[in-house]
């Protein structure tokens, strides 16, 4: 095991989500990877960047396309012990979103603290 992975503050997996909940399958497939890792007992953090912050907006529905959307998946995160939900603060501001607009409690991160995150995880997957 490498030195890095034995450090106490290093979690297993960081999943970076950069796409919105509709229009492509990126967000759903990224969340699937996070859920599977958590189901196998891995410690998972999620980082919502850019358009992906819109996935956290309350009251979303599946929409007309017959796709499932991601709100139901996000509601299951707690059940999978994924409770590190990190959000790019600048993206929230850009989309005019405040914390009361969001369906889950999140940690807002400013641009300066984002670069530290990859080093704090053994594996990073970006969707």
């Amino acid at each position: 095991m490498s030195e890095e992975s034995t450090r106490e503050n290093v979690a297993d997996l960081l999943v970076i989500l950069r796409h919105g909940p509709h229009g492509s399958s990126w967000l759903r497939e990224g969340l699937d990877a996070a859920l599977v890792a958590a189901a196998f007992g891995r410690q998972v953090s999620l980082l919502f960047m850019g358009e992906a912050v819109t996935a956290l907006v309350r009251g979303q529905q599946a929409g007309a396309l017959g796709q499932k959307g991601t709100a139901a998946t996000l509601e299951m995160l707690a059940m999978y012990d994924i409770d590190t939900l990190l959000v790019e603060a600048e993206a929230l501001a850009r989309f005019g979103l405040a914390e009361q607009d969001l369906m889950l409690p999140v940690n807002r991160l400013d641009a300066e603290s984002l670069p530290r995150l990859p080093a704090e995880h053994r594996l990073v997957l970006t969707f």
Binding site: S2, D12, L13, A33, V36, A39, F40, R42, L123, L125
Partner: peptide, 13 residues
């Protein structure tokens, strides 16, 4: 399954 991806990623440098 996706579990294989996570295993692979954690196993490799």
């Amino acid at each position: 399954g996706l579990g294989q991806l996570v295993d692979l990623g954690l196993r490799c440098d």
